[in-house]
Design a protein around this nucleic acid. Sequence first.
RNA 1: GGGUCGUUAGCUCAGUUGGUUUAGAGCGCUGCCUUGACAGGGCAGAGGUCACUGGUUCGAAUCCAGUACGACCCACCA
Length: 918
Amino acid sequence: MSLSTRYNPQETEPKWYDHWEKNKYFRSEPDDREPFTIVIPPPNVTGVLHMGHMLNNTIQDILIRRARLQGKNACWVPGTDHASIATEAKVVRKLRAKGIKKSDLTREQFLEHAFEWKKEYGGKILDQLKKLGASCDWERTRFTMDDSMTRAVIKVFVDLYKKGKIYRGLRMTNWDPAAQTALSNEEVIYKDEHSQLFHIKYPIEGSPEEGIIIATQRPETIMADTAIAVNPNDPRFKHLVGKKALIPLIDRAIPIIEDGYVDIEFGTGALKITPAHDQNDYEVGQRHNLEIIDILHPNGTLNEHAQILVGEDRFVARKKIKKLLEEGGYLMELENYTTSIGHSERTDSVVEPRLTKQWYVDMKNFAATALQAVKSGEVKFYPENMWNMYYQWLNEDNIRDWCISRQLWWGQQIPAWYIRSEDGGRLSADGEELAFVGVDIEEALEEAKKQTGNNDLTTADLIQDEDVVDTWFSSWLWPISVFDGFENQEELKYYYPTNTLVTGWDIMFFWVARMIMSGYEWSEDLLGADLNGKQPFNDVYFTGMVRDNKRRKMSKSLGNSPDALQLIENYGADGVRFGMLSCSSAGNDIIFDAPFDPETKKALNESKLCEQGRNFCNKMWNALRLIKGWEVADIEQPAINELAVKWIKDKTDMIVADIEKNFAQYRLSDALMCLYQLIWGDFCSWHLEMIKPTYLGEGKSEPLDRKTYEATIEIYEKLMVALHPFMPFVTEEIWHQLRNRKEGNDCIIQRYPAAGRVDKALISYVEKAKDAISRIRETRNSKGISPNEPLNLFVESTESSKSLFDQVGIKDMLMKLGNLSALSFTETKPDSTISFLSGTEKYFLELNIEIDKEAESKKLNEEKKRIEGFLTGVQKKLGNERFVNNAPAPVVEKEKKKLADGQEKLRLIEKALKSLEY
RNA sequence: GGGUCGUUAGCUCAGUUGGUUUAGAGCGCUGCCUUGACAGGGCAGAGGUCACUGGUUCGAAUCCAGUACGACCCACCA
């Protein structure tokens, strides 16, 4: 057999992924085993794999694969989210490119186009996850607009309505003029922006020479003003209160009123009140019964109420009105000003506050429940301090009702119907439109008959609400609805609650909190006696945001994100998984340092960390090549091999225990680093070097004894299983290369290694030997002596050195790895040797060169000084009565040992210095 | 305005409830080593008064208070 000198992920990764899928290793069905369940945070159906997904899904895959290796029934449910605003915007754009306007289509026609688009581009991201190695149960793939999911949404809507937790209300909401829909508060992103504060003079009615100057950053809205307000305690304007001012350019008279909301210090102290276009102005308007004049079309252009600049976009209008105001002599001053402006999360357009009728979920009780769930520990956050952010949003002072209606077509249509009035509109009573909620039109009809007392109504009299619900109104049901839990609880009772949710903290409010709410709201009703907990998941692992080396969030517009798929292409999925994980300590944002190409202004698809991961694969691959290349014979096991095998077994068990601890705390990058060092450092650099058969020349080596060979293969297998969750492909490949496997004997379904009993003394002896070997090499290095030249070594005969060299194989280890011709005990320093310390052992290395006594003595004196300083510290500590009396006994013992060891070292150095004098 | 987190080697980060020979890893850097698993490699080395100032303690990178700088969340913003 001949293996290529480099590991080739491009070849092995698709091979093993297909193999796993064919063998249905990712498939989960309820059985007797303990379940381990993760539901994926569903990516946008038309999305493309980015760095955040890679981090997120690598972590989920590690947890799932480890659970599978622990013999649990691992179930990872994948799926996608319909992302109504973003997707609808994409479809509208695509149709426009074809010359089709959304307004020319019926709802049905539009949805047809949208589903076609979904069919064509949707779910690509799931294929990309496969490239990463994600071991999802693909047969369970769900989409938030699947029929069963939609039925769940409708059911839940009706249920909440009947419980009085959903209501319809006229309120100021955030309006996205690009998507032309209402938004929830969470969908508005505030950004600091430079703008200007316009100081505008409004003439006083009846005395044109007088005026009142207001400050605003939105001069285009003055036509919607219905008052000017000043603070009741502001003496400057007392004489004007009660009079009327004329809006510049349109000369409409508005009252000058007093309201405590106005800040005397800010701007000019006089505030224009525009109830239709500002939340606070709206409230002032309510207090003073002011008229509401809305001058904007839903798309952000000025309507006829504005009287001037009709049809202009609000930002164009701002520029134009500035000129008009200047020309009219109304613009008194322009002040530079920084303020935060709300943008739509999905379309980035500037959000308008707008008075509209929308559906809301009453959040008061939900918020309390969600807080309690985490407070009580039923849902645990990792890292714990995420609680603070969670609390801040959910506490009763901050929580706002959730606006769930969206003026879109792509989504679940709201299950509310109105009675068609004679003019084609909706029938009202007392100024309120009558709405009837039901799971379908028949149920709504019954409701309508009951409420109106009109039994002649038919479905033809009803018209359904045009709006759809917020996408998050379907995703908050995800942990239940992926198991069709609202219709059939068979699977839910096995899989619910799920184990761990892995997600970014940026969607804590959008999604995590709301899933907790929905879990507590419905799981008990659904599961009854079969309920294992109301919480939708036991643990939430919040990943950091992936940022570039300037700490900016990775985004398309900045071009600072490498192409995730290209990275996989370049380094292999295992390499990228390693790279992602090694820069992501739990809870912190992760800095993914990809070099930047100044010419294209884009991140290159390169990464040092991924390279390290790729190199790690290669290292393991070459260890395999080495082992496979050995000739094995039935000969006696040499002492050094006996030691090597015993040691690496124990060392592995020791590290496996550390890994267990790390997993328990979601310290995945630590767990990976443990394995990295165990495999590269201990297994390759020490174990394999120890057992490596002597080279005889001409491509031939001595054979290796079978016992050592078998043990080494076993250890390597164990290491591959332990590493498998992190780097699934390379471990599966090596697993199969190590032995001829029967069908179905795959790494992915082995049992994860468990920690065993460890001989700590043995490990410490080998550590001593390793250190001595390093000192030999260092001495060689500094004296310019080749590692190939065998040298004679002496060790000072002491109790401790004798017990060290009593260990089976230790002497051979030093001989072999230190390349020694002889090693013997001595009482005194032999001639032409140079001494060094390793631990408390003193060694003398025979060199066939002139020894620079001066340099040696200088070096020894430096070391002496260092140890003396150290000893002073320890002695001071031990001389302190309070330390000896107060510190725990083991600590005092340790200090005493430090003192004794230090003194021994000092003795050795002094001896060496003395011997130099001759 | 309210709140959270961070500051440890040139860079990115560990440091597990204060005490394992006066701080660890990876990358980067320096020196030496190529026909023998791997130069995507080996061996060795240099590099830190743990942001600053006080305090608690026998003992502080670790606990407390304050300062500085940085990142973020929520609310408000004419």
